[in-house]
């Protein structure tokens, strides 16, 4: 598979949110405003890409060498947790407003399954380092697109006449289901 195919495939066809259902928690939690959704998308992109590269290097140079593949999950989590802490400190310093807007969802990137999912899938697909970078970049761009689309739609909810029992999360869940079906349309491109 060439690099371009991987990119298109992870962004649209195998979108991690809509077809693999990873990272649903922040997808529903931070998609109320496009502004915070952009920030979250950027933060996740940064964490996913960097953690994938680091975990790939650690897997190849340490875990595979010493036959410690069974430590994969715990080591990857360690890397991700440290990176998220780092991003949190960085944001607190450089952009306090974004830090406040992301709130509790920023530390929750640690347990965002898309981060661990991409890191593990990179190894399972036997990608090389360049493919790993492209795949994780594509995955997080796909996540950011999903988040932005959702936020854009949810901002319109305020002006829509939604039946009372469906207001808030129920209509959000229905919308994300419809969006997942819409994304099925990309099936067959790659």
């Amino acid at each position: 598979m060439n690099i371009f195919t991987i990119l298109i495939s992870t962004i649209f066809v195998n979108n991690y949110v809509f077809s693999q259902f990873l990272g649903i928690c922040p997808f529903l939690g931070v998609s109320n405003k496009t502004e915070t959704a952009t920030g979250m998308g950027l933060a996740v992109t940064f964490v996913v890409t960097l953690s994938s590269v680091i975990t790939w290097v650690i897997q190849k140079t340490i875990l595979d060498k010493f036959g410690l593949q069974y430590l994969q999950t715990i080591v990857f989590i360690l890397v991700i947790a440290s990176l998220v802490q780092f991003v949190e400190m960085f944001l607190k310093k450089s952009s306090p407003n974004l830090y406040k807007a992301l709130g509790v969802y920023l530390p929750l990137i640690t347990t965002n399954c898309i981060v661990l999912g991409v890191a593990i899938l990179n190894i399972e697909q036997k990608y090389n380092i360049i493919e790993t970078i492209v795949n994780s970049l594509g995955a997080s761009i796909g996540f950011a697109i999903a988040l932005l689309l959702m936020a854009g739609i949810r901002e319109k909810f305020d002006f829509a006449d939604i039946p009372k029992p469906l207001q808030g999360f129920p209509i959000g869940l229905i919308t994300s289901g419809l969006m997942a079906i819409a994304f099925l349309g990309f099936y067959g491109i790659v």
Partner: peptide
């Protein structure tokens, strides 16, 4: 391995 990685990340976070 795990302890070393933990220490490494711990120190870099402390520095950060």
């Amino acid at each position: 391995v795990l302890g070393g990685l933990g220490l490494l990340f711990g120190f870099s976070l402390g520095f950060a």
